[in-house]
Design a protein around this nucleic acid. Sequence first.
DNA 1: TTGAAAGCGTTACCAA
DNA 2: TTGGTAACGCTTTCAA
Lengths: 342, 342
Amino acid sequence: MMDQPKKQPTMMDVARLAGVSTMTVSRALKPNTSVGEKTRQKIQDAAEQLGYVLNSNAASFASHKTGFVAVTIPSINNANFAETLTGLSEGLNNTGLQILLGYTNYSKQEEERLIEQFLQRRPEAIVVTGGSHTDRCRKLLENSGVPVIEMWDQPKSPIDESIGFSNADAAALMVDHFVEQGYERIGFIGGDASRDTRGLDRRRGFVARLEALGLESHRLVSAGSPPVTIREGMDSLVKMLDTWPDTQAVMCVSDLSAFGAISYCIRNGIRVPDDIAIAGFGAYDISEVSNPTITTVDVSAQAIGLAVAQQVSNRLSVQQGNPVKIAAPTILARESTQKSVQ
Amino acid sequence: MMDQPKKQPTMMDVARLAGVSTMTVSRALKPNTSVGEKTRQKIQDAAEQLGYVLNSNAASFASHKTGFVAVTIPSINNANFAETLTGLSEGLNNTGLQILLGYTNYSKQEEERLIEQFLQRRPEAIVVTGGSHTDRCRKLLENSGVPVIEMWDQPKSPIDESIGFSNADAAALMVDHFVEQGYERIGFIGGDASRDTRGLDRRRGFVARLEALGLESHRLVSAGSPPVTIREGMDSLVKMLDTWPDTQAVMCVSDLSAFGAISYCIRNGIRVPDDIAIAGFGAYDISEVSNPTITTVDVSAQAIGLAVAQQVSNRLSVQQGNPVKIAAPTILARESTQKSVQ
DNA sequence: TTGAAAGCGTTACCAA
DNA sequence: TTGGTAACGCTTTCAA
């Protein structure tokens, strides 16, 4: 399988066999081009016979159109980002655009490295996660000469365009939900590590909202660097209860850590939400099926991907499209925070 | 940001500014090339000054080396495949190889379409999931002229090379585990849909092992097309208990459906494993943290990705490497099937 | 509707 | 260590 004896056929071979010029072959292999019906058939037969496969590398080179969309996300192994990628991928289907995927492992340095690498491939658009980059990376993106979309965030001064939501505002929603449910001594787990920019934003928004409402805002527990795991959720809850045993409600930086926190409670006879209410973020599958089900913030991860795809298509005029909108984050109120419905 | 006034500089611009030929520039920008120290510095300065970015598209074209590795997986939104992809991606880091990712949505037709598309990009290696393809797809892969690796399976006649495990054998392990625990009336959920080739293999191996041991092997419940969800796990268990109420143990085609089945039990007062034992497949995170924890089959998803990356590197001589091995699947015996440890 | 010629930006190859 | 020249396989552009 490894080596093939003779080289692969080129357009010239097809042209020769079909008795036409390479230009005609080039046209015949693309839709919406003016080529005689007979000629086209002749060419397709010749191509088939030779087992010809278009070299889109050469095509890109000649046309200055690579059909690449560079995309960086923090991690593939995270349901939220996987959903966004799924949406992006589906949305780009049938546009002829190909994603160049890189994952940053939540590191801005790594993002910079990836962008630098991707730029060499001459992508026609660049999609990055978040609005926080190294200076050099920002400069590279600004000078790229192609559309740049920052997703999963709403930066104050976007590089070019952003499709996402304010993590701070989204977390503030949960404060309101807690208050509505009658909780007052409220804590937050995670969002401490400098690498976790979105987590940081969430905690910041959470604290700001607590302060705005005149509530205590010091019940903050570190959960370490992203990705924050289920185990870290457990450990953090222990710390929370050790330090502030009278805490009534806790928001975790993600559903995974919330699930961990709840698991700890269940296994140790602490009732959720009767003894303590626990909420998450991200509307992961697990929030819907854990016992109790977990109150969370739905950020429509897949819709973000679809919207980005749509907007990329618009910008590249690959296809027409309506102005792109995504739904604002919403609270999914479930068992883990609502005594009444329990 | 969208349009840049002047064209991007080329190697010729750099060469001119540095007072050398393009060939020297080409060499100076790559490691391990014989270029004078002063010359190299001069060139790097010139490149920096012009903001030159290598056009690796043109480079690919000229050198016939694209640096692409085409990869198809059924779904990104599946922890197992995401892990494999993570391993693959990490393993390919620093090789200069770039993954072209496509997901088939568990469809062989879609796989064929993707492969056809990828072939145009002239990848240097192709990685596909599973050993079952359309005839045309198989032919395309055979004629690709590059290394082809089928992962997550052990096909009888691989196209080129395979890195994975036998899904049938892996499932058979669970029969043995059940029997060791004293269960005799054993069922299987999922693996029914023709699209789910790996699920099918698992069920087949499961049934074969039951028969080999002289046990009943008719307790099979459909769970629908992949991806099999938590909800489908719940529904399938209901069917299982309706049809064969005396079932003692059930293996689900994946941990997700196992979790669903267990959730149904917990919420309906059926004790796991005291009333019924339930096992999954895949060693998803959830199997470790659900309550009870779920007995599952660990297939080292990430290790598969790493091994594939290693083997791709070997085949392309990007770097030296030891012969590639992955661990055989193993049973992770946990609470959901073991009365004794409960 | 078709064709001819001129690139596209880099690397391979050989020579100096 | 460096440079000159010829590809690489398409598409663009203009002309027929």
